[in-house]
Design a protein around this nucleic acid. Structure first.
Lengths: 349, 349
DNA sequence: TTGTAGGCGTTATCAT
DNA sequence: ATGATAACGCCTACAA
């Protein structure tokens, strides 16, 4: 089924008119007689004309600038793989005239985020990919971008429905369900388990809550009788987790499984009292410390959110939009990868 | 760091010579004076010249033909997602002059495979992506392709080392280890488990053996004492699995976990004797019947080999090679995805 | 309303 | 050995 490739010249010849008119029809620029318009549209349909994107791109010969805003990987290693993803996409599209610039902000407060947004806007980029860490601020930023007709994509967090641009991330509620299932598979029915919110330096309470909801949701759908309690480990207590855990298990000695809703599962390494040392733990994210905990057996499963791929896709979507006029997928949910000590290696790329 | 984009014209101007000579240097076509050669190479290095792939592609204006050979999805649903992957890649690269044609063969014997290979060679394609289901025959085919200078990629199975072209697949040995780990996580130490080779219609004994090796390998590295036995379920016995399982468990009542090395895990649905009904099972592949078994609880974990992505990458690699002169990655190992009833949905695309 | 004439960057041909 | 030039398909400015 080797379709012949038709060019505008072919079509013009077939219709007995000039290339210019054909082009005007294709781009609906008007200034075409009804007769010519109809004749050409008919031919276009008939041969299923596919414009040569290469030629189009060459002609445009415009370079597009994308900015990617994400938390500084120095401050939270979770974001490190994103930089790789950004670079990979950047390399891939630079020959097509897309320039990508990554900008880091300090995730511990909104100040740095706002400053970075402002700075990026000043560059008048064609597109922006960013992590909407702070809800209100992100919303405001997105609106400004829309107003300036800047292409938009977010990853690792979403803006409200109807928001222009693309969202790339994970179904957090469902990932909570996955965690529930895993603990259930390890423990069986009628046990007591705990959801641990090991607070991050910055605000991602929404993430943690969504995950907990999914987790509870899973257990509620079961016939068995599992008790779920929630424990928050505030940021200030992170210095002495062993102490906190000792208290916790003194109060709840019958807890036999833990679900850590953040990437801080590694904190449990060496912090579990002897009475509960081998207890099943499910956590999040393939950061180095977690992998160590996975190998030492403290953590049984990690859920991988694939930050690298999220960032890669964000840049790719916008790049393809600019370079090839592809439309941007509105929402892309990545798989919820289950990781244990034997398969993590392949997710590190 | 917006690098300026240099063109051949720029370089020619800088060197004070014509574009033609610059081109000759870039493509090492000779017929260039030493002086000019050195001057140009120096400039090229200095500015880190990156040719405009779009323009190059436009100029070449050649259409490439790729053939993809894979088992007929009608006969084994495992291959169905590959067709999607092939189509996705095809759509993506058709604007760049790459034509992709999928051809199915009957996996139950070598006859159809050989016939298909012959037929494909007759078309004189620029590239071939294929599933090396039959070792000897695949080797012969690959050699013929190399001789004819046809671009080569294989997926879901490898040819011996040093073979030209690309291989996309999974580390089967490691996936056996993953299965071992999963069963171990579900069962704990000092149990007896069984490796079940549910024979496929066609020969993939090598795959099954690799998986079993990895599985045993994992358990050998542990301190605990797990006994592993192997049971083959020949193709002819597939009609009456319940009977076979009854015999099996009568003989080995103490087996408390199963590892099915093929995509036939669903056969256990309704075929396990009451005495062993809820026994942990780890299997392979997200085919419909397996997903049902996952949801009903007969299968606890499936290992996903991502056939869709394998096929997609095979086509993409060759397409990018032809369209953009990218070099073909020699070997690409995909992640070993662990799937349970809560996360399978995202792997179905 | 329609047609024509470049030009995007690279490459191949042909003349010098 | 080198330089000028045309062509790939599309788009746009400008002329008719």
């Amino acid at each position: 089924m080797s379709k012949k490739k038709y060019t505008i010249a072919d079509i013009a010849y077939m219709a007995g008119i000039s290339k210019g008119t054909v082009d005007r029809v294709i781009h609906k620029r008007g200034k075409v007689s009804k007769k010519a318009y109809e004749k050409i549209t008919r031919i276009l349909k008939e041969i299923d004309y596919q414009p040569n994107l290469v030629a189009r791109n060459l002609k445009k010969n415009k370079t597009y600038t994308l900015y990617v805003l994400l938390p500084d990987p120095e401050q939270d290693p979770y974001w490190a793989p994103c930089v790789e993803g950004i670079n990979a996409a950047s390399r891939e599209f630079q020959s097509f005239g897309v320039m990508v610039e990554a900008v880091f902000f300090d995730p511990s407060g909104t100040k740095s985020f706002n400053a970075t947004c402002k700075q990026v806007l000043k560059q008048e980029p064609d597109g922006v990919v960013f992590v909407p860490l702070f809800y209100q601020e992100s919303l405001a930023f997105a609106e400004k971008c829309v107003k300036k007709k800047i292409g938009l994509a977010t990853f690792n967090g979403s803006l409200p429905e109807g928001q222009a641009g693309s969202f790339i991330g994970q179904d957090l509620h469902q990932s909570g369900r996955v965690a529930g299932k895993l603990l259930h598979q390890l423990l069986g029915d009628d046990k007591k388990v705990a959801v641990i919110h090991a607070d991050e330096a910055y605000q991602n309470a929404i993430h943690m809550q969504e995950k907990e909801k999914g987790f509870r949701d899973y257990y509620e759908g079961l016939k068995g009788n599992t008790t779920i309690i929630t424990q928050t480990l505030p940021h200030k207590d992170i210095k002495n987790v062993a102490q906190s855990m000792k208290h916790f298990f003194a109060e709840h000695p019958d807890v036999s499984g833990l679900f850590v809703t953040t990437s801080k599962g590694y904190l449990l390494d060496g912090a579990l009292p002897e009475t509960h040392a081998g207890i099943p733990v499910v956590g999040y994210d393939l950061i180095e410390k977690n992998i160590k905990a996975l190998e030492s057996g403290v953590i049984d499963f990690l859920i991988h959110q694939n930050p690298r791929q999220q960032a890669y896709l964000g840049v790719s979507y916008l790049s393809e939009y600019f370079a090839f006029d592809k439309k941007i997928p509105g929402k892309k949910l990545l798989p919820i990868d289950i990781v244990n000590s034997e398969n993590y290696i392949h997710y590190l790329e």
